[in-house]
Nucleic acid binder design. Structure first.
Lengths: 136, 136
DNA sequence: CTTGACCGTAGACTATACTCCATAGTTTAT
DNA sequence: ATAAACTATGGAGTATAGTCTACGGTCAAG
């Protein structure tokens, strides 16, 4: 299929597909072109793009995705290899989640403190609670 | 103080400070320079940079930080104004946290399914659970 | 035939937040 | 005096993931 069809089927834009090709995530050989020099994309390429989309959804970068795709291609995406990569990603996610939870709690606490300490009748100046060296 | 001292005190690099100046987050007037054209940074500038660091830690972008800093400067960083901004940031954090939790759970479930379904004695091929259209 | 859509390529641009490079003047310490 | 460190400016580069622009060839429908 041509790039327009591939874009429609993959849900990615033509520019994105070209970008992935330039980055090396997909490869089109010289002999995979039509006589008019248009590239003929195979079902394998479509599958590869769909895998990239799923990996990206899980937070894998394009480079990480390329690594995984190559492992799949040479059949080294074994249970242990992939599990290991997934567990690393989970650890990163967990760390990030903890970080964000702590931050949101700090922000919430700041607002709570403001509500209980500030005088709502005098809103004409910077908040002494939220705008301070100990907070923002 | 000169930029080297400001960098040491703020914990930001000289390049970062110059970048912030170029972005408009801090401003040095013509008359705030020494005779040799070196910029004289005030304590106010240092405080402003420290505020930027705290805001950045909470996930505010440089542009958002500039807005908040300007509000502080003209004394419009009132309780309600800042609370509103904080609550918006909390909402974004909450949404992102939910998203990440869902993703990590999906990843964990995938690994669990692999452990319970795959034969650990045959690790010579792609994992049929983790490497599939329904997962990665 | 003509026009618009599609294809291809290269390179610039966007967003965000720096970081590095090059050049030149000033200051400091040996 | 000399070399190194510091200051200034402008602009390019990095990382990530696209998106847009410009130009030219090909194809399909009116």
């Amino acid at each position: 299929m041509l790039i327009g069809e591939l874009a429609a089927k993959s849900g990615l834009s033509r520019d994105t597909i070209r970008f992935y090709e330039k980055q090396g995530l997909i490869t089109i050989e010289r002999k995979q072109r039509r006589n008019n020099n248009y590239k003929e994309y195979s079902e394998e390429i479509l599958n590869r793009l769909l895998t990239i989309k799923r990996l990206k959804n899980f937070g894998f970068t394009l480079n990480e995705s390329a690594v995984i795709l190559d492992m799949i291609e040479i059949r080294e995406a074994t249970c242990s290899n992939v599990s290991e990569m997934i567990e690393k990603k989970v650890q990163l996610l967990d760390a990030k989640i903890l970080d964000m939870v702590a931050l949101r709690n700090q922000l919430i606490n700041g607002v709570k403190k403001c509500v209980s300490c500030c005088n709502p009748a005098t809103p004409e100046d910077n908040c002494p609670i939220l705008i301070s060296d100990g907070f923002l």
